[in-house]
Amino acid sequence: MDLNAFLILAAVLFCIGIYGVLARRNGVLVLMSVELMLNAVNINLIAFSAYVQDVSGQVFALFVITIAAAEVGVGLAIVMLIYRNLRSPDLDKIDQLKG
């Protein structure tokens, strides 16, 4: 089966993720979009693992899944903190670095 089918599927998911990260205002939704991007990466890893017939890609995918879980944990804690301080989960309220 064509390798590129999987890779292009992953690229599409990745770019939808990019759109979500850039365009969503709500912090939780931004984190969901990040998950889309991470999943795209995982599909790439598994596809290449099958292509080069080496199990390392699968192990790396496992690591990515683990780290994604940690990322969501910390990320949601940060969103909670933003919510508590600004009474809103919106990321564009945070502009203290404005030049």
């Binding site: 690229a11 599409v12 990745f14 770019c15 939808i16 990019i18 759109y19 850039l22 365009a23 969503r24 205002r25 709500n26 939704l29 919106d90 990321l91 564009d92």
Partner: peptide, 17 residues
């Protein structure tokens, strides 16, 4: 739920794609 740069975001996403 979206911010004011969603058109730019769409362009960038399509470009990267």
């Amino acid at each position: 739920l979206d911010n004011d740069q969603r058109w730019a975001a769409g362009v960038v996403a399509l470009f990267v794609l």
